[in-house]
Design a protein around this nucleic acid. Structure first.
Lengths: 341, 341
DNA sequence: CTAGTTTATGCATACGTATGCACGATCGTC
DNA sequence: GACGATCGTGCATACGTATGCATAAACTAG
């Protein structure tokens, strides 16, 4: 049915091995026969069977990318860059959209150990998860993007989330806010943990320690921002600012504020994290802490490829990018308590 | 290095064939030896090499999904459902994020013909594109989701975009609008073409023929909605309503309106298409034409799988889902021309 | 002109699994 | 107790490609 290299061999009057060599550009094959083979291959529309090739070479030219919720706008943005960079390197992208929090590592494992991919990019590792370690130990190159995992001895590309949290805390405190709320991400993510730690440190350094009653934890979703913002604004007195662990959460909070008729930033300041594309949309225009996502994603792929092609030293590398405050329109000094006369 | 079925065979004291049969659940293998094999496999952490398996069975258990711009929120939503359904069926998802408009079908072709996937879901075919046809002709099952391609004899899952356009036109005209603008999608997409055709028909039927000076065409992006909305509102007189070929375009238009200080819906009505998740976010709350995207995506995968498993009749099927108007807060009757005294 | 070298090609095999076929063992039946 | 049926297992091979090794042909050098 399908056309194999043997068919080409027959058509070109050479052996199968010569076909293989000719098409792969082996210098030892004569120019004349190479042309004959290429011609025959094109005429018969031959395309090599990648499976058979991979079986021999033990390389699939495929990279797996794990995200936890592709519906969250944060990931498509990452995925876009990842995919482009992976393609550019001559690899394909296999997508795994796994709720890592549900602990279904088992679903992934067989697929990978089945040598279906050459390497993995984890864009959403959770702290408890041992998947990265398992894969790595199975000899599969792995790079962690955006999140850390404590034990794993793997390549790492993240931004300085602790410092990002500090920037956030400093900024809000310096604006004059004192009743500052926090909507954190999942406890088992390094991003949320580090951002919160930095945030707390900065607040404390300014004598504005985080009131535990103003702390909420969600799952980095729009829904969690929406729901917790409503919840927080019901307090008496309500917070004058909310630090959201995520831009998407900030969008949810903004939505809630609009729903409640709370004016942003006059009555409530909202601060996000990531600076995804949408954060700059006019309706949001959210002040946020920027991570250089595109550069991070690119580097992650490059590091993985390097390791795949065997040019990388064995020791795992960790690259940390700086974060940066981006001022937009969702933050302002708090309103005067008493109001104007 | 890696553990093969031969290692298991040795460990369990049977032949390689028996291992294969035992693990695949062949009934002809004795229960006792089956257990012995399974035990050995687990003990040695054996995972079958999928490449070798695929080479024999000629099935990779992998489905390719093509989207044109994963950054566009429309696609992640589709992708989420597609991926889930594909996983559920025991398949993997290979992602292709190709700007089909750039005609780089050539990048795709070798990968597929290389039997790297069992079938393809095209979520963003363009009218001119012959890729679907090519793949289909190469014996690779293909299903078109969301968009049509004229010539191709392949399975098709779309919604009634023509009728959706009619709903839009009818709704705006019946609200009393007469200066109605259109921001269309790319001319080479069936969705945009059909929506526009239905829209025009409905307007004409109400004596409110589309003014060509109020027509713009973009690329379904936020950016295009933003830019064209600003452009349209500079006209004198400006339109009182804009039908956007897409929710994302509508978001862009809303953004522009906010930027310009134009009140929505008081000064300007905005109507979208798709009803993606974000459309219901409070900041947008955009009136739109709903397509049952989740159901469409699920069906597309099911149809493909059916064809893969060979239970489907050879004739291509086309399923068309109905659309539906969803009223939210971005549409209202036009303001009185003269204003109130 | 011969021996040694280079060059171009083919032969054979391997990758790891699935499976048709054959064969030995076990069972039931009369 | 012998014979056919059934069952369980192993042998051999195939999938399509890549590659080490051998070899034939062409060439170089003395």
């Amino acid at each position: 049915m399908a056309i194999t290299s043997r068919d080409i061999a027959k058509a070109a009057g050479v052996s199968q091995s010569t076909v293989s060599r000719a098409l792969r550009g082996d210098t030892r094959v004569a120019e004349e026969t190479r042309l004959r083979v290429v011609e025959a291959a094109e005429r018969l529309r031959y395309t090599p069977n990648l499976l058979a090739r991979s079986l021999i070479t033990n390389r699939t030219k495929t990279i797996g990318v794990v995200v936890s919720d592709i519906t969250n706008p944060f990931y498509p943005e990452l995925l876009d860059v990842l995919h482009a960079e992976i393609n550019l390197s001559g690899y394909r992208t296999v997508l795994f959209n796994e709720r890592t929090d549900e602990g279904n590592t088992d679903t992934l494992l067989p697929q990978l150990a089945g040598r279906a991919v050459d390497g993995m990019v984890f864009a959403s590792a959770t702290l408890g998860s041992r998947s990265a370690e398992i894969f790595s130990r199975a000899g599969l190159p792995v790079v962690l993007l955006n999140r850390r995992v404590d034990e794993a001895q793997v390549d790492l590309v993240i931004s300085d989330n602790y410092n990002g949290g500090q920037l956030a805390g400093r900024f809000l405190a310096d604006l004059g806010h004192r009743r500052i709320a926090l909507i954190a991400g999942p406890a088992n993510t390094s991003t949320s943990r580090d951002r919160e730690a930095g945030f707390r440190e900065a607040l404390e350094a300014r004598g504005a320690q985080l009131d535990e009653r103003l702390r909420r934890a969600g799952d980095y979703s729009h829904q969690s921002g929406y729901q917790w913002c409503i919840d927080l604004m019901r307090l008496d007195p309500p917070p004058t600012a909310i630090f959201c662990a995520n831009d998407v959460v900030a969008f949810g909070a903004l939505d809630a504020a609009k729903r409640l008729g709370v004016r942003v930033p006059e009555d409530l300041s909202i601060l996000g994290f990531d600076d995804i594309e949408m954060a700059s949309w006019e309706v949001f225009s959210v002040t946020t802490i920027r991570q250089p996502l595109a550069r991070m994603a690119k580097l992650a792929v490059r590091m993985l490829i390097e390791r795949l092609e065997g040019q990388a030293e064995p020791e795992p590398r960790a690259v940390v990018f700086p974060t940066q405050l981006v001022r937009r329109e969702t933050t302002a000094p708090p309103a005067q308590e008493g109001g104007t006369p």
